[in-house]
């Protein structure tokens, strides 16, 4: 019985590490990171080899990938989408502006960073991020899952 108790969580962790489904939400950024994130799906990068799928519905996703400094209009939506994702869930902030506001800091309509609103698990800086950096960010986030 003792052994079984240890095996089951291990299997769960393994499964979670091997199958992180992402939900992409543009929280008010320029298109730069978004198109780089989309190009992860394409032959040059192909994140499906890590088991990562780009899901359409928040209820199917594990990782919320946000790009952008969180504008005032997007703010309630972002919170709502985060709440719709079933536990366990993680948040990845992609791009300098979603990490800290970046080039837009000081603008009147932005919150300046995802972490002002949601608990962020991994930051991917870069303006815009290269696809390799985003993959690295997702993989590091996945590896940190306990």
């Amino acid at each position: 019985m003792e052994k079984n108790k240890a095996i089951l969580p291990n299997i769960l962790t393994w499964a979670r590490k091997k199958s992180p489904w992402i939900l992409h939400f543009n929280s008010g950024g320029c298109n730069g990171c978004d198109i780089e994130l989309l190009s992860l799906l394409t032959p040059s990068y192909d994140i499906e080899r890590f088991g990562i799928l780009n899901e359409a519905s928040p209820r199917h996703a594990d990782i919320l990938v946000c790009t952008g400094p969180v504008t005032e209009q997007v703010r309630p939506r972002l919170k709502r989408i985060y709440d719709q994702i079933p536990e366990p869930k993680w948040v990845l902030a992609v791009g300098s502006c979603s990490c800290s506001g970046g080039v837009f800091s000081g603008a009147y309509n932005i919150l300046g960073g995802i972490d002002k609103l949601l608990p962020v698990d991994m930051y991917v800086p870069g303006c815009p991020c290269r696809p390799e950096t985003i993959i690295d960010g997702i993989i590091k986030l996945v590896e940190s899952i306990q």
Partner: peptide, 13 residues
């Protein structure tokens, strides 16, 4: 298999 196990261990809302 991983997808299935993960989905079964996720919160159900």
């Amino acid at each position: 298999v991983a997808d299935l196990i993960k989905l079964f261990s996720k919160e159900d809302i």
